[in-house]
């Protein structure tokens, strides 16, 4: 790639970064605004997590360049996600088991 077209490409990136910044700011204001509605905890939790996932996806995709990353990185992330979900299931599962949800109320 020539230096000129390379610079053009980077200018395009910079414009995307500005848009992502704007989106992150809007989503932050949105998540704070929703919290003032004092919705039932389950709805509040779903909305807050959806917004947090959207924001982190934007950061990961554009600032961390995952949108154009190589397979090896995704392999690492796939394993991470599997272990993370397994850890949550084990911990939360142990709570409900103790409460007797799985074993019919011991």
């Amino acid at each position: 790639m020539s230096d000129a077209s390379h610079a053009e490409e980077m200018k395009r990136h910079v414009k995307i970064y500005q848009r992502v910044f704007f989106a992150l700011a809007v989503l932050t204001i949105l998540t704070v605004s929703v919290s003032y509605l004092h919705l039932p905890i389950i709805y509040a939790m779903i909305i807050a997590l959806l917004i947090a996932i959207s924001k982190s996806s934007l950061v990961a995709s554009f600032f961390m360049h995952l949108i154009s990353e190589k397979r090896a990185v995704f392999l690492v992330l796939t394993f991470t996600l599997i272990f993370l979900i397994a850890m949550f299931i084990l911990l939360i599962g142990s709570y409900y088991e103790q409460e007797g949800v799985f074993l019919g109320g011991h």
């Binding site: 998540t31 919290s35 807050a48 947090a52 950061v59 990961a60 961390m64």
Partner: peptide, 25 residues
């Protein structure tokens, strides 16, 4: 600088989850 950035953005992502789950919920 790119990899230092990867770390910095990760710290940002952690806060993106911390803020709503601790302050708002």
């Amino acid at each position: 600088i790119e990899v230092a950035g990867l770390y910095w953005h990760f710290v940002d992502i952690v806060w993106i989850f911390l803020f709503p789950t601790i302050y708002l919920l």
